[in-house]
């Protein structure tokens, strides 16, 4: 039962990622693309959690945690650059 739920969830997240890719390519502004990248990272975290549950392993959690941290820092750094023209002042 959990396996079937995991397959359906994986397919749903794949469609969601395609939707964010649509926004990433269409833009129109640079901030739309940053937001799309941030959403894509969160979708990837969801995918990693589902796959960890599917394969019955906790090994992937560090990956999910690292994704969350790197995604956050990337988004904030990009926004900071747009706001101040500099990242570390």
């Amino acid at each position: 039962m959990i396996d079937i739920a995991c397959i359906i969830a994986t397919a749903t997240i794949a469609v969601a990622s395609l939707l964010t890719l649509y926004r990433l390519t269409r833009g129109p502004g640079v901030l739309d693309r940053i937001l799309a990248l941030d959403t894509l990272v969160i979708n990837t975290i969801g995918l990693i959690v589902v796959i960890g549950l599917w394969f019955r392993t906790t090994m992937y959690f560090e990956t999910a945690l690292l994704f969350a941290m790197v995604g956050f820092v990337t988004t904030v750094a990009l926004c900071k650059y747009l706001l101040r023209g500099n990242i570390i002042e």
């Binding site: 469609v15 969601a16 964010t20 959403t39 969801g46």
Partner: peptide, 11 residues
């Protein structure tokens, strides 16, 4: 997964 989909659809 449904809510992740809704978030991306909103985007």
């Amino acid at each position: 997964s449904f809510f992740l989909f809704v978030g991306s659809l909103g985007l």
